[in-house]
């Protein structure tokens, strides 16, 4: 009895959480002209159309660029910061921690607007640059947190031993620490990638003629055309995210780090 109740509750919850996604997959596979479920016959024409829309191609490239390089940049400054916060007794380390974590607390729409008003307009930054900075800042807290937790699990005396055995501090880091937190860094990268790629509010104001991230472009497309191609694109993107996450899970047990 208790078992049945258990599965009923879980079944209902999961239907609510995942059902809409399944509907999107099928609505995108419609043979008809408008978005509907159940679809008017099945066809892959809208999935094919996605690849012919030029603005999707452009905005996909921009979103990819931001997600990959924004996350790499965040790791580049985030990993040393996480290392320093874990291994050194720094003056003001709480302040540093708060500053680095701040982007997670401030609503994205405000970040986008602030960067537009005070970087793009007066300092002549391009919108793409502002997007790059915004996405880097947004991913930074995740990078620091995830890498911190994997550094936390790594005993500091290993590096000390390496230093005693004649390594420089940098060698100790690259030869001993880095290989051991590889999984954490990769997990941070994937988390950062997915966060950046799906980000909407930050990019809302940071768009200009011809410069739009993919989610913003999808919103704009939906306003203009009401065909199932946005559903098809949504489904494709979801599969892309899932493939990345599953590959990571297979390779290194991604969920241990998140």
């Amino acid at each position: 009895m208790a078992r049945t109740t258990n599965w009923v509750v879980l079944g209902l919850t999961l239907t609510f959480l995942i059902g809409p996604f399944i509907i999107i997959i099928f609505a995108g596979a419609s043979a008809g002209e408008s978005l509907a479920f159940p679809p008017a016959g099945l066809s892959l024409k809208w999935y094919a159309k996605v690849f012919t829309v030029e603005s999707f191609r452009q905005s996909f490239m921009l979103s990819m660029f931001l997600a990959v390089f924004g996350t790499l940049a965040a790791l580049l400054i985030g990993v040393p910061a996480a290392y320093a916060l874990n291994r050194y007794k720094l003056p003001g380390d709480e302040t540093i921690r708060t500053i680095v974590a701040a982007p997670i607390i401030v609503p994205g729409i405000i970040v986008g607007l602030a960067l537009l008003r005070y970087l793009v307009v007066p300092l002549d930054f391009t919108v793409t640059m502002a997007l790059f900075f915004a996405h880097t800042a947004l991913v930074l807290p995740y990078a620091v947190r995830v890498v911190s937790s994997s550094l936390h699990n790594l005993r500091a005396d290993m590096e000390e031993a390496a230093v005693l055995l004649g390594c420089s501090r940098l060698q100790a880091f690259t030869k001993v620490v880095l290989p051991n937190i590889r999984g954490g860094v990769l997990a941070a990268f994937i988390l950062g990638f997915v966060t950046s790629f799906n980000q909407v509010p930050v990019s809302l104001f940071l768009s200009g003629p011809g410069v739009r991230t993919l989610p913003i472009d999808m919103l704009a497309y939906m306003e203009i055309t009401y065909d199932p191609s946005v559903a098809a694109l949504s489904a494709l993107l979801a599969f892309m995210s899932l493939a990345i996450v599953f590959a990571a899970e297979r390779l290194l047990g991604f969920s241990r780090y998140v």
Partner: peptide, 29 residues
């Protein structure tokens, strides 16, 4: 390395502007 990356980001942004004359127009959707 960070500077390098920022520069390459800037370069990527700039390349589209260099190709041809562009005219930016604003129209109904």
């Amino acid at each position: 390395k960070l500077m390098l990356m920022l520069v390459s980001a800037a370069a990527l942004t700039a390349h589209s502007a260099m190709a041809k004359d562009t005219l930016t127009i604003s129209v109904y959707s």
